[in-house]
Amino acid sequence: MAKTLTQEFVKGLWAEIPPFRLVLGLCPILAVSKTVENAVGMGIAVIFVLVCSNILVAALRKIIPSKVRIACFIIVIATFVIVVELLMQAYTYPLFLKLGIFIPLIVVNCIPLGRAEAFAYKNGIAASAADGLGLGIGYAMSLTVLSSIREVFGNGTFLGATVFGPSFQPFKFMVEAPGAFVCLGLMLCIMNAMGKK
């Protein structure tokens, strides 16, 4: 194999960081990045699903007939998503209430399916695990950064703790949907400018 495991892992953190480089998984990133707490919860859920589904798809890649591979990927991904959903309901119910529909929506989120199709179906188990972990952490990081900006400026808090003094006027625009688009656009712009050197 040309690339080492470390390379597979690291590329997810910068070179192929999901929302910015691959521009995948934007729907949840816009909705869930209102507060840092939600973003971290969502990030952990995605990491879990991505790593597990990548490993399983890689393990089964020789058995899965190519004509029905997408259906097989969806079954694998959906299974792990429901596992996450049930565990969240059982142990972190308030977080489950906040994330709501976006947990089941990980199924149709392009990241796990995209990685299964583009990577895990063609590579070994270890490489796929590294790829899933890298991209998952990359996704969680982007969510955390975006949500930090939105929560700090839009609400004046970070993880629920007040950042600015009482005189701070929250920039409400940031926690609304348009704020998410503008913020994401600016981050994409910065990332592209940095990558162009």
Binding site: L60, I63, C72, I75, V76, V83, L86
Partner: peptide
């Protein structure tokens, strides 16, 4: 393959649902 995969997934989820 699809049948086995589906029944495996169904069984796993049913067990987990019962457990939680």
């Amino acid at each position: 393959v699809l049948t086995v995969l589906c029944s495996f997934s169904g069984g796993l989820l049913a067990a987990l649902r019962d457990g939680t």
